[in-house]
């Protein structure tokens, strides 16, 4: 019985940042990377099932460049014996449906019985990838899972979802399934130093889309939208009026006239 946990290394913007010249993303000089917070919870969910039952394997995976291996090592430091990383430089800027196609391909290759993804990623917040994986695999899915009852190998899982106003929805889902896990479902563990050291020795399979039988055309066809522009909206800003009293009065009068003109 195998649970695949797709994780993502997300971008964290510096307090002050600039955009890339093409206007499609932030300048990498102002970006740090860290593991996506939701993935701590999805991975913990999988580890708890693994620890409670024998014969359960948990495999973390990511679609990302070499630096993203850090997020996989972070998972392996807590548990699990091996990980999978998929990448090709052509995937830079790929959208959630494209990523999902590759995750689904890994799920098939691994023979995964369940996929636990984070509800969303902290940087792009589409909350789409997990659901697209389900579509690719033609599995049922439940999003924003806050409680899970699941016996490995069982035909159904019982899950709870938190709705508006503290309302809880309880439902059963046929397995295999894709679940996207919400923050707070558990208390994710920290890695020990032993885990950190051991994780460095654990294998990470490196695959390309081609290795997974996904062609460039497949990937291109999977793009369901095109990023047009990323920008900081102009904000109304206070102005500090400086100078002598007369200069300040003159500036104030100009502003009032401008505002009257605009109205």
């Amino acid at each position: 019985m195998k649970i695949l946990v797709p994780v993502k290394q997300v971008a964290v913007l510096d307090e002050d940042f600039e955009l890339r010249d093409d206007g499609l993303d932030a300048d990498p000089d102002f970006i740090d990377h860290e593991s996506n917070e939701w993935d701590d919870y999805s991975y913990e969910t999988a580890l708890q099932i693994m620890e409670a039952h024998s014969g359960v394997e948990v495999v973390p995976m990511t679609v990302g460049p070499e630096e993203a291996e850090e997020s996989l090592r972070r998972c392996l430091a807590k548990g699990g014996e091996r990980a999978v990383r998929v990448w090709d430089d052509a995937l830079a800027g790929a959208g959630p449906a494209t990523i999902a196609k590759l995750i689904a391909a890994v799920a098939r290759r691994e023979g995964a019985d369940m996929v636990f993804a984070g509800t969303l990623s902290a940087d792009h917040s589409f909350a789409m990838t997990g659901i697209c994986v389900a579509a690719e695999l033609a599995w049922p899915h439940v999003a924003v899972v806050t409680h899970l009852e699941y016996e490995p190998g069982a035909a159904k899982a019982t899950v709870q979802r938190e709705l508006e106003g503290g309302l809880v929805e309880k439902l059963t889902v046929d397995c295999p399934a894709v679940l996207t896990i919400q923050l707070g479902i558990n208390q994710p563990r920290y890695a020990s130093l032993r885990g950190v050291k051991q994780a460095k020795e654990k294998p990470v399979d490196e695959l390309t889309p081609a290795d997974l039988g996904v062609s460039g055309e497949d990937l291109a066809a999977s793009a369901c939208f095109r990023l047009r522009r990323m920008f900081k909206p102009a904000k109304g800003q206070a102005e500090l009026i400086e100078g002598t009293a007369a200069e300040q009065a003159a500036r104030l009068a100009t502003i009032i006239k401008e505002l009257k003109g605009a109205a």
Partner: peptide, 17 residues
Amino acid sequence: ALGRKAMTVDECLNYGA
């Protein structure tokens, strides 16, 4: 690592530090 149960002697011994 904050907000966790106080570490025991065994946990420290087996921590890998």
